[in-house]
Amino acid sequence: MKNATGNKMRLGIFVTVSIGLFMAGIYFIGQRQQLFGSTFHISGVFKDINGLQIGNNVLFSGINVGIINNIEQTTDTTVRVEMLINEDSRKFMKKNVKAIIGSDGLMGNKLVTIIPGADGKPQLADNDIIETTKAVSMDEILQKIKITSDNAANITGDLAVIMQNIREGKGTIGKLFSDTVFAKTVDEALVNIKQGAGGFKQNMNAASHNFLLRGFFKKKKKESEKEKEKEKGTNNK
């Protein structure tokens, strides 16, 4: 008899714990789906929802604040997405928030991100329709990458032609690389220019001491000194 009571008690504990675990599981899933807390509805109209589904998360400042409650196609180009938002987040959500469809990581589920608006606006009310922003889809990104890679291919093609010409000694730069006589001539020309510049400097020095041009050079010197003094005065002030 005592043993039978003990068995019944053990069975009772087992049944209670198992049912408790089940109820806890149901509660935590329900809580995540905003079934038990206080909530409010908002909606946004999108042109393309990129595979968003009922039950996907809604993030506000990176925090999970709700779920997608309903998706309804209103016209041939617009889809209305209804969101169920946790009441606790309402005080931070102003009328000028924006919704954008994103994804949870590279391979993750789609989600709606609500971008906070500027201060000074009233809080969102129940059933408000919020502004939406077009999300950049993967297709668009791929299309832009394709254009960029096409341009890169054209540029590298041109560069390849230029390099080929240089290698074959075509054009001035090509000759410089491949024609030793041309390179020597350029080198000599540079030496001549250097020598010519040195001679020109000597001539100018001689001209500045000549009585015919001395006045002109003195005048120039005085003007430059005056300008320097002016600059000094401005800096001291």
């Binding site: 039978a4 068995n7 019944k8 053990r10 069975l11 087992f14 049944v15």
Partner: peptide, 13 residues
């Protein structure tokens, strides 16, 4: 039934 629940359920735990 309770006895069988104990033998079948609890004893298999």
């Amino acid at each position: 039934l309770i006895k069988q629940c104990y033998l079948i359920g609890y004893r298999s735990f």
